[in-house]
Design a protein around this nucleic acid. Sequence first.
RNA 1: GGCCCCAUCGUCUAGAGGCCUAGGACACGGCCCUUUCAAGGCCGCGACACGGGUUCGAAUCCCGUUGGGGUCACCA
Length: 544
Amino acid sequence: MSQPTIVTRFAPSPTGYLHVGGARTALFSWLMARHSSGRFLLRIEDTDLARSTELATVQLLEDLRWLGLQWDNAELVYQSKRVTIYDRIITDLIARGLAYKAYETSDELDALRKEAEKHKRAFIYRRTQYTDEQLRRFESENRPHVVRFAMPVRDYSFDDQILGKIDLPASQVQDPVIKKADGMPTYHFAVVVDDAEMGVTHVVRGQEHTLNTFLHIALQEALGYARPIYAHLPVILNKDDGKKMGKRDRDKKIRQQSQNWLKNTKKSPADLAAASSLAPSRIEMWIADSQQQLDLNEQKQIMQVIGLKETDLPEILVHDFRKNGYLPEALLNFLALLGWSPGEDRERMSIDDMIKLFSLENVNKAGARFDREKLAAFNTDASAGAPIDRLVSALRDYLKVNPDSPLSRANDDALARVLKMKHGFRILRDVDESSRFLFLSDEQINYDPQAVEKVLRKQNGFEVLRELQPLLTDTSNWTAADLEKLIENYCQQKQLGLGKVAQPIRVAVSGGTISPPIFQSLEFLGKERTLARISRCLSSAGHS
RNA sequence: GGCCCCAUCGUCUAGAGGCCUAGGACACGGCCCUUUCAAGGCCGCGACACGGGUUCGAAUCCCGUUGGGGUCACCA
């Protein structure tokens, strides 16, 4: 007897780039399937017409591919294309008396909810009994309506692979909407039908769906579907506030910074709007109401004014991590450990290790906080251990999403050299930012005033550079090793520490105080450009 | 607030009644290395939420308290 094949799925709704929480869910489903040589399916849950976009689907697929979570269905399933199938089943449900049309307006429902809230009760929808005459009238005037499932009122229970036995008392049962007024099915209905049709055996999803499961079970029973095995993953929380990690967090950070800016500059929201050329009313509303969110473009404008960099924002989307230069294998390794552990103090794992070791049995129940420091450490390790071709291709990918970097102009050989110089780096963005000067023209080097002041003025850097000029001009061996010897000799003669000499050179050549190891940098730059930059620095960097 | 769920270092976790004086990783502190930023080496700080049981024995089992999270949409 062979075990039935395990079929898992990932079913995101296309509203933009993939959230790390979604990525973790996808990873666990994928690992589950790969571990048992099963199938991992992808389905696009685009039943919310207002929020779903084609662009978002493209972005989603891009993120999944970047992570390497390949799906096994050649044809993607789009729920929006299956409406006639859902309709047929819903019509049948109505005919069997298991579903019904409900005519309450949103306002009426809101009022009922407020009422329930006033009495500190949860709002439970109860079926409204219409008279035959009312029904006839509603039908004839084509009154807008939803379709609700008449969920049998009883106690429910199911066994979760992670959480164990979960109960729902009959008192909490209510009739869910399965078809919206716009004719689309709700998530709850589509998910049940599609999971059954696609032969999904294991539903792995976030814990925010735990209570939805009862509804799905009731629907499965009404439709005669088999019940899949459910596994609800712990929620991913923010490191600092312990709340569910969400896309809003970036907006939140920008709002906080904006409020600081307003306070410090004693300006008004209207001033901020003007400075970032946005509509004042819009900004006033956004500042005042934390429910409001700026779109990507508005965020950019505001950030420029208040002095917030892209990298100051918390990464939330897979795309954010990609843009900052994390390796997908490191992200995946870190994400896997958010709620799962293979035991035996095992942490750093390759994708293959994870596939081999993964089991739902050792997934935790409690929510996990997302610690970026630890992720960065994983990335550092993964990068340090990766072969150079892997790093070059990762850097190429980074440049693909950061096309403005001067490193984009470099060939693979140059990138490999930079990567080797920066061995031990944390993220690719650090490599990029600290080695840009190698790829800029001499005229594009900007001198950091603070560096000039400290290293060149106060510490006699200008003098050192002037003395070094002829020595460097005369040397014929322009290699890191030879340059090091040359400088060390100079240091010895002058009784100077290496730092007193290396730093001025660094500033002259890069404009700042951070760079890859200096002698390797000089070798990379070449004699001509090094000397050109030193003399440019001596003559132009505010040196009077 | 109702309902559901959860609870080991600051964080992620190991731990399935004696292997626990509670292990690892990240962070943090100190020292070393050092031309910057990193990386590296060594050392250190640091937790079983609380209260009751059960048991010869409890971080591990049961009950309660407290704390935390999720959820209460014609969003998924």
